[in-house]
Amino acid sequence: MTATRTRAARFRDLVGAEWIKLWSLRSTYGVLAVGALICVGITANSARSNVALIARSASPLQRLGIDPMIAAFMQEAFQILGVVAGSVGAIMIFGEYTSGLIWTTFTAVPARRSVVLAKVVVMTAVMTAFGGLVSATSFGLTQAIYHQEHIGLSITAPGAFRAFAASALLAPVCALFGMALGAVIRHAAGTIVAAIGVLLLAPALFQGETYRWVKEIGNAMVYPAWAALVKNPAHQILAVPGRPSPGAPTEKYPVTITEAWIVFAAWAIAAVVIAVTTVDRREV
């Protein structure tokens, strides 16, 4: 009798399998498409409203008070982007637990860490492309609208490419965080609620400037860091009585650019570590 030798799965094979799993779900296409349309729609509508305001008034204060960067990367729009990315990332983990497919996966590939790392590679690549597409479309469309009033920005404008890169990378960071929550909670509703609570609601609890440690906790969260990266350093507000002069700081303990990038990297790395170690140590 000849013994059958079982060849260990190569990592690229695992990546290919996870790619097929992700795109075999119809919900993946729908969620990403709807999320992209909503995000771009919000930013384009904001730009159109501002252009209409400028057209109705010749006031230089109103013209100078409009920041083209804000419309391109509106917080409300990219909060939706983050929730969409986090949801897709979470589904990639808890979806297999709820369907029972995780049993088959770990039976075929006992190396659980390799399976999760393959999921991480696929999710990071897909969400980086998704975030880049949405950010580029939003920036290009809004600046084309603003060009009607000759206030549109180019990608080479100060801070423009940094804002684009930060908005593009926001998607994979939120997706990886969703994967980590999915690995820990393993429940659809609980994971989505937790993602929204941590990403969107928790920063509101740490906005005060009375105590520095409270503000620093808020600064270490994803969206405050993203907001620091998308600020337009070239935008000047016309100085009028009762308003701060151009360049005056608006907050007591602001997030620096370096700190913001560190926050992005820290959240991504921590999410991967949590997802890998949790799935490896807990029983299915």
Rank of each mutant, 00 (worst) to 15 (best):
Q75H: 14
Q75S: 15
Q75N: 14
Q75V: 03
E76N: 08
E76H: 08
E76R: 07
E76M: 08
E76G: 06
F78P: 00
F78I: 02
G82I: 02
G82H: 00
G82L: 05
V83H: 03
V83G: 09
V83Y: 09
G86T: 06
G86Q: 06
G86C: 09
S87D: 00
S87L: 15
G89D: 00
A90N: 04
A90C: 01
A90D: 02
M92Y: 07
I93L: 14
E96L: 07
Y97C: 01
Y97W: 14
Y97D: 03
S99W: 11
S99Y: 06
S99I: 03
L101I: 13
L101R: 11
L101E: 13
T104R: 12
T104G: 15
T105F: 11
F106G: 11
F106V: 12
F106I: 13
T107W: 04
A111K: 09
R112D: 08
R112H: 07
R112G: 09
R113M: 11
S114E: 11
S114C: 05
V116H: 03
K119F: 05
V122I: 11
T124Q: 00
T124D: 05
V126I: 10
V126K: 06
V126R: 03
M127L: 10
M127S: 02
M127Y: 03
T128S: 14
F130Q: 01
F130M: 00
F130R: 04
G132A: 11
V134Q: 00
S135M: 10
A136W: 10
T137P: 01
T137D: 02
F139Q: 07
F139L: 08
G140F: 08
L141D: 10
L141G: 07
Q143G: 10
A144L: 15
I145D: 12
Y146D: 03
H147V: 02
H147M: 12
H147N: 15
H147A: 15
Q148E: 14
Q148Y: 00
Q148G: 12
E149W: 10
E149H: 15
H150R: 15
I151L: 13
L153Q: 14
S154D: 15
I155Q: 02
A157D: 14
A157N: 11
A157R: 04
P158C: 12
P158D: 13
G159K: 05
A160I: 10
R162P: 05
A163G: 14
A163H: 00
A163E: 10
F164I: 02
A165W: 00
L169H: 00
L169G: 01
L169M: 01
L170P: 03
A171D: 08
A171F: 04
P172Y: 06
A175T: 01
A175Q: 02
A175C: 04
L176W: 02
L176N: 01
L176F: 10
G178R: 02
M179G: 09
A180V: 12
A180M: 07
L181D: 02
L181R: 07
L181T: 09
L181E: 03
G182N: 06
V184C: 03
V184S: 08
I185R: 01
H187W: 13
A188E: 14
A188Q: 15
A188H: 14
A189N: 06
T191M: 09
I192A: 07
I192C: 03
A194S: 15
A194R: 10
G197F: 07
L199T: 14
L200N: 05
L200Q: 01
L201H: 05
L201T: 10
P203Y: 06
P203Q: 02
A204D: 08
A204R: 13
A204S: 15
L205K: 04
L205G: 07
L205W: 13
